[in-house]
Design a protein around this nucleic acid. Structure first.
Length: 220
DNA sequence: TGCAGGATTAGC
DNA sequence: CTAATCCTGCAA
């Protein structure tokens, strides 16, 4: 896994990591050796249970407050993938990042794709997953270490019904690599997309993108 | 156990 | 604007 961002990168404020993810490269090595990658140009930060737009929720079970199964990885170790199915149709990819003892993840919303991906194939969180062939098997996978060194996947619910039951093949790898950073002047912030149900929290400027970039999912 | 609704997208 | 489509979390 060439030059992956290290574990410490993810152990900081979710919003700081979101900002620094802009410019980084998301890379997927397929079982046949093909590399699909792109440079991150748009993200959204999602915090813990206090954030009404976030999947991170607590549920009373057996007298104790525990994370709900879907988003349990957001409560766990940083630098892992949180991958979920949305609208019964599409896959979204997030990176778990938060200071020790906190909760949060960053939704990757758009990439500037690299060869051989088609130029417009990574605009939107579900489209980039389709283009890079990222699926729910990656939920809970560590992004900063070779899978050989990986500890057991985060204690998450059993694979959602319908998820591929097979595990990742030997050659498959998903990781984040450093890339040419964007300057603060190039970064625009705005409200997150599609979270109107979160009322006041829907207005927080937790969507970050490269100003005017042609691969944004929509203008910011 | 049932059921409303979703961090989206393509198509009319 | 709406349908597609399957899980999820919460109510009962």
């Amino acid at each position: 896994m060439p030059s992956a961002l290290g574990e410490d990168f993810y152990a900081r404020s979710t919003l700081i990591v979101a900002r620094e993810l802009l410019g980084a490269r998301l890379c997927h090595r397929l079982p046949d050796g093909e590399l699909r990658a792109g440079r991150i140009v748009e993200v959204e930060a999602y915090l813990g249970p206090e954030d009404k737009a976030s999947h991170a929720k607590l549920q009373r079970r057996g007298g104790a407050l525990l994370p709900t199964p879907r988003s349990a990885v957001m409560f766990g170790p940083v630098g892992r993938a949180y991958v979920y199915l949305i609208y019964g149709l599409h896959t979204c990819f997030n990176v778990v990042a938060h200071p020790h003892g906190e909760v949060g993840a960053i939704l990757i919303r758009a990439l500037a794709p690299e060869e051989p991906l088609p130029p417009q194939s990574c605009r939107g969180p579900a489209r980039l997953c389709a283009a890079l062939a990222i699926d729910r098997r990656y939920n809970g996978c560590t992004l900063w270490a070779p899978r050989d060194a990986e500890v057991q996947p985060a204690p998450r619910a059993a694979s959602p019904a319908g998820a591929p039951a097979d595990s990742l093949g030997p050659g498959e790898r998903l990781w984040l690599a450093p890339g040419a950073p964007f300057t603060d002047a190039e970064v625009a912030r705005g409200p997150r997309i599609g979270v109107e149900y979160a009322q006041a929290d829907a207005l927080l400027p937790y969507r970050l993108g490269v100003r005017g970039h042609p691969h944004l999912s929509r203008p910011i």
